[in-house]
Amino acid sequence: MTTLHDFWPHCGFQTLEHDVRGWLAPSDGYLRWLLARPELALVPESCAAEIALHESLKVSPARVVASAELAALQDADARENYTVFLRFRDGLLAAGTLEVYYLQLMRSGAVNVPTVFIDAVVQALLRNVLDDCNDAFEARAAEMLFRPQRITLQDGQMLAGDRETLDMLNETAGLGEVGRLLLQSGALQPTAQVKVLSADNAAQYWQESDRHHFLLDLTHELTQDLSHGLTFKMTRARSGLKALARVLERWVAHLLGVQVLIEPVHQVTDSAWRWHVGLDVESTAILNDLYQDRPVEAERMQRLVSLFTLTFANPAEMRADVAGKPVYLGLATNAEGVVRIKPQNLLLNLPLASAS
């Protein structure tokens, strides 16, 4: 399969196989990629039993592992890590594709694997969804579905930055332990090694996508002061929120087979709205309270990053009692200013006429 850009090259996507409908089938190569993750990598303290297990799985990553082999691992953390990995691996193999595995896991209501594995699956799915993508803003927006983001306001712009990257730069200025010591001593100021994604530098994204150092501008409207006290609001053509909306549309189409249109909005104008979906824990709670006419403190309301309307291309695919009505989506930060999108919410909570 030809791709416009091989972005996120370290997400394991190139090791996966495609079935006839274009969904991702786990291969030995993908299982080896998982096995090479830091959580499972051998360390100098690894015992002989762990080394033997790891090396044998590299040769035959789908082989059955006897309980006695796990019991032989001397380190309790290593035993737990391999137990979780094997549960995850067996779930993938039984499902047949990453898409089926993800849908079954989320619909089960019993998520029994760590977030690190779920985020890896979501990234691979999005890499597949965006395989024909030529828009760096959409690819960067898609990172929000599997990497927490810090939201900051700067010169009137609402910027989303990769939490892990920003925290690392704040702690070490990108210079490891030496940088940490220099920062603590005051000899070094935190350096701005991140940049706002723009039309001018968008081409750089494809080569640097794994560094996660581009900020995404989520400012959707610009206000321009005119004469006589008038103001003019203009929607930005390169809005990060609009790019996120396009990604969410693709996400729903790929996994549910339903065509939807998603648009950022500033407020819910329908006083009798019928359905809403929070894209994260915080916005879910806020929308639930508003829907139930419960008071929402100003501080919580200010955490709302955006609202969206979602409409079905075919209203017949909606539940009859809400057919033709928009679905309102919410996106919000937590108290620390971090957005943690739960992409499964869109798949589990849409008012579908029948299970997809």
Results as ranks from 00 to 15, higher is better:
residue 207 Q to L: 06
residue 146 F to V: 07
residue 169 L to Q: 12
residue 180 R to P: 08
residue 157 Q to D: 04
residue 201 N to I: 08
residue 184 Q to T: 05
residue 186 G to T: 03
residue 192 A to S: 13
residue 218 L to S: 04
residue 200 D to S: 10
residue 141 A to C: 06
residue 129 V to E: 13
residue 127 R to N: 14
residue 225 D to T: 10
residue 142 A to I: 06
residue 131 D to V: 15
residue 199 A to V: 09
residue 216 L to F: 04
residue 232 F to W: 07
residue 230 L to D: 03
residue 130 L to I: 12
residue 205 Y to T: 03
residue 131 D to K: 15
residue 230 L to Y: 05
residue 179 G to N: 01
residue 142 A to E: 05
residue 199 A to L: 06
residue 203 A to G: 04
residue 165 T to A: 13
residue 159 L to G: 10
residue 176 G to S: 03
residue 176 G to I: 02
residue 182 L to H: 05
residue 188 L to G: 08
residue 143 E to T: 15
residue 129 V to I: 15
residue 183 L to I: 00
residue 181 L to E: 13
residue 153 L to V: 09
residue 137 F to E: 04
residue 231 T to W: 11
residue 127 R to H: 10
residue 186 G to I: 05
residue 157 Q to G: 02
residue 194 V to A: 13
residue 174 G to N: 09
residue 212 H to Q: 15
residue 137 F to A: 14
residue 205 Y to L: 00
residue 206 W to E: 01
residue 233 K to D: 02
residue 197 L to D: 11
residue 236 R to T: 03
residue 225 D to S: 12
residue 186 G to H: 05
residue 210 D to K: 01
residue 129 V to H: 02
residue 184 Q to E: 06
residue 132 D to P: 08
residue 161 G to N: 09
residue 178 V to T: 11
residue 141 A to R: 10
residue 195 K to E: 15
residue 210 D to S: 13
residue 177 E to C: 02
residue 195 K to P: 00
residue 204 Q to S: 01
residue 231 T to H: 11
residue 190 P to D: 06
residue 136 A to G: 00
residue 164 E to N: 11
residue 178 V to M: 09
residue 214 F to S: 10
residue 163 R to P: 04
residue 230 L to P: 00
residue 147 R to E: 14
residue 187 A to D: 15
residue 179 G to L: 05
residue 156 G to M: 07
residue 178 V to C: 04
residue 222 L to D: 10
residue 193 Q to R: 14
residue 216 L to M: 10
residue 229 G to M: 07
residue 212 H to I: 05
residue 155 D to H: 14
residue 158 M to Q: 15
residue 167 D to S: 05
residue 135 D to T: 07
residue 181 L to F: 02
residue 129 V to T: 15
residue 137 F to T: 07
residue 215 L to Q: 08
residue 131 D to A: 14
residue 150 R to D: 08
residue 181 L to C: 11
residue 190 P to W: 05
residue 231 T to C: 06
residue 133 C to E: 14
residue 193 Q to P: 01
residue 156 G to H: 07
residue 151 I to S: 03
residue 165 T to P: 03
residue 232 F to N: 15
residue 225 D to G: 04
residue 230 L to N: 01
residue 149 Q to T: 04
residue 211 R to G: 07
residue 170 N to E: 14
residue 127 R to M: 07
residue 214 F to Y: 13
residue 236 R to D: 14
residue 138 E to R: 11
residue 168 M to K: 05
residue 158 M to I: 09
residue 127 R to V: 08
residue 218 L to F: 00
residue 214 F to P: 09
residue 149 Q to C: 12
residue 139 A to R: 00
residue 203 A to K: 01
residue 202 A to M: 01
residue 192 A to H: 12
residue 178 V to Y: 15
residue 158 M to R: 14
residue 177 E to S: 02
residue 147 R to V: 07
residue 227 S to V: 07
residue 134 N to V: 06
residue 139 A to Y: 09
residue 169 L to K: 09
residue 130 L to A: 09
residue 142 A to K: 12
